[in-house]
Simulated assay, not measured.
Amino acid sequence: MALIFRLSGKRFGQQMLITDKSGLFNFVRPVTLKAKPALSEKEEGHDERNMRLKRPQSPHLTIYAPQLTSMLSITHRFTGMALSAYAIALGLGAVVLPESIPHYIEELECAEIGSSCISAIKFILAFPITYHFWNGIRHLLWDAGKFLTIREVYITGYVMLALAISSAIALSAM
């Protein structure tokens, strides 16, 4: 194919370059380009650019109704962070505090705060542990390929919440 184009170009190419009205130069306009320095773009953030271009702000979370699945996922992350904070606080407390932790628990019980207040504090401390534990088992079941339909996901979510709350109440009652 290249040979055909090369031979036809040698034969007919010279005739097209003739400057009369039927030649190639009649179809081509001479153009002169002027060099200009490049314009530097302003440093602006994503939001400023969208406001300048009059683009609407995305409503993000404000248009979505909270779903059980998303709320349980967010809560699982928060309880994991709370458990990490427990570990750091207990570790630092064991290193920094002059007395042992059972001493401070005994002092708290002797402070006459009231049994209902102590039970509430115990529940607040126990709920992240129980929630993260039962939701972790739920995730392990998912990893095994069980309970993955939407109906089963919601059922296991409610069962997990009931188990987490009831076990946290049982732990705080001790």
Score class of each variant (00 low, 15 high):
Gly13Arg: 12
Leu68Phe: 09
Tyr158Pro: 00
Phe78Lys: 05
Val159Pro: 03
Met160Phe: 06
Phe123Glu: 00
Ala111Glu: 08
Leu61Tyr: 04
Lys10Cys: 12
Gly45Trp: 11
His103Tyr: 15
Thr19Pro: 07
His46Ala: 02
Thr75Leu: 10
Gly136Thr: 15
Ala87His: 09
Pro102Tyr: 01
Gly136Ala: 07
Ala111Asn: 05
Arg55Trp: 08
Ser116Tyr: 09
Thr75Tyr: 12
Ser167Val: 03
Ser70Cys: 04
Met81Gly: 05
Arg29His: 11
Ala94Arg: 05
Val31Asp: 00
Phe127His: 07
Phe147Arg: 06
Leu68Trp: 06
Gly9Leu: 13
Glu106Gln: 02
Gly80Cys: 02
Leu7Gln: 06
Val159Asn: 02
Met16Glu: 05
Leu171Gln: 05
Thr75Arg: 00
Gly13Glu: 01
Gly157Ile: 12
Glu43Phe: 03
Ile4Asn: 01
Met174Lys: 06
Trp134Tyr: 14
Ser73Tyr: 11
Glu106Ser: 11
Ile88Lys: 02
Ile118Ala: 15
Gly157Cys: 03
Ala89His: 08
Ser22Asn: 13
Glu41Gln: 08
Glu152Trp: 06
Lys42Val: 10
Leu141Val: 03
Lys54Asp: 10
Phe27Thr: 04
Ser172Thr: 02
Thr69Met: 06
Met160Ser: 13
Pro30Ile: 09
Ala35Ile: 06
Arg55Pro: 03
Ala162Arg: 10
Pro66Cys: 00
Gly136Asn: 06
Glu107Phe: 05
Ile18Asn: 00
Pro56Asn: 13
Ser119Glu: 11
Ala35Asn: 03
Ala173Glu: 04
Ile105Thr: 00
Thr79Cys: 15
Phe127Pro: 00
Ile18Phe: 09
Gln67Thr: 12
Lys21Asp: 10
Pro30Val: 08
Pro128Val: 08
Gln15Pro: 01
Lys42Ser: 05
Ile118Cys: 08
Phe27Ala: 09
Arg151Asp: 12
Pro98Tyr: 03
Thr79Lys: 00
Gly80Trp: 09
His46Met: 07
Glu44Cys: 12
Ile74Asp: 10
Lys42Ala: 10
Ile169Tyr: 08
Ser166Arg: 01
Thr69Lys: 14
Ser172Trp: 00
Leu92Glu: 05
Ala82Leu: 13
Met1Asn: 09
Cys117Arg: 04
Pro66Ile: 01
Arg52Tyr: 12
Phe25Gln: 10
Ile118Ser: 15
Lys122Ala: 14
His46Glu: 09
Thr149Gly: 11
Thr19Ala: 15
Gly9Trp: 09
Thr79Ser: 10
His139Asn: 13
Ser100Val: 03
Asp143Pro: 00
Ser58Asp: 14
Trp134Gln: 12
Leu33Gly: 04
Gly9Ser: 11
Ile121Pro: 00
Ser84Trp: 05
Leu83His: 05
Arg55Asp: 12
Asn26Phe: 08
Ile4Met: 03
Phe12Leu: 01
Ala126Trp: 14
Ala126Glu: 02
Phe12Glu: 03
Lys146Ala: 04
Asn135Ala: 04
Glu99Thr: 00
Cys117Glu: 15
Gly136Gln: 02
